[in-house]
Amino acid sequence: MAFKGTIEIDRQRCKGCSVCIANCPMECIRLSKAVNSKGYRYAELANDACIGCASCATVCPDSVITVYRVKI
């Protein structure tokens, strides 16, 4: 059984700490080039390899990530 997932990031709350990037097993998160209203580069989805494991959201200190997952 395989899973496909995706994440949604609250850009305005994200502080760009990159802990999610270090914890993503699929290497599908990166920092944006743009900044949010606080001046932080925020995390964004880099590709569609996400499996919805929620590791990123579990370690996120600011709880900005919502994780979706479906079976395929």
């Binding site: 997932g5 919805g52 579990t58 709880s63 900005v64 990530i65 919502t66 994780v67 979706y68 479906v70």
Partner: peptide, 13 residues
Amino acid sequence: DIRKPENIVYRKP
């Protein structure tokens, strides 16, 4: 298609 409320597995408490 995946971003639907029924597929949420983790969100801010």
